[in-house]
Amino acid sequence: MNECAERTGSLGSPLILRLRHVYGGRAGCLDDLAAYPKGGSAGASPSSSAFWERTSSGGRRFAEPPNAGAHPPRPVGVPAESSVGPSLAKAASRILVIGWGNELRRDDGAGRCVAREVAAREWPDVEVLDVHQLTPELALSICASRSVIFVDACPVTECAGLSVQPVDPVGEEAPFGVSSIGHTGSPGALLRLTKALYGVAPPAWLVAIPAESFDAGDHFSSTTAAAVPEAVREVEHLVRTMEERFDEDSRCKAVE
């Protein structure tokens, strides 16, 4: 049996860290941010990101990531949904949120804080991973998901404000230096590993949270503190949009 099916079939999908059951660390960390102004005061509005497109009615819709179009992805060696029963079908309809970083390095822990806040909302068909590093075995969780939302801190020198960007698997020509998958990895490298190992790389986005300080400490800078609630809202918006798309895809398939 393929790893993806195993993770969600015979094992009953317990392999994902279900934070609603094991809610630990800085639980309810948004409460820690109460002293800071909430709302979208930090950085640029997501609507200004190249990822978001304005619609004619003034609303917004999200642009296709380059690796979109395979909903749900079907891993190598895994039979079509109709023949694998509900477990894999459920897994393939799952949206995976991965927040990562070092919580002892101030703003570096922002992605994990967002992950826990998302987990606390207990959205159906959304699984959340709150991890220290992006490590190779996450490929298993990624290959079993319909789409992935990575959440990480991003130095303000690179990210003036909160941004939402599509993530591609890194190309063959991409250099693999010190930041490549060893003990740690990048979202693009992880997607490429997933594709190399299991034949699929689901569409993925990165929610990048502006971060001012990576010094030792466990409290956020004011910029990051303000951006975290906004990042949670952006994750929610992405999830809802994906769910709507998935529903539409399902209806189309039913008509076909």
Binding site: E3, E137, A139, L140, F176, L193, L197
Partner: peptide
Amino acid sequence: AQRHILGLAKAHPDIARDGVWLRMLGQQ
């Protein structure tokens, strides 16, 4: 440029998958 886990995944995917699974087991 190829001598890393992704190069391994390309040349020996079964071994790379074994490694991913075994590490997942320990983490699990």
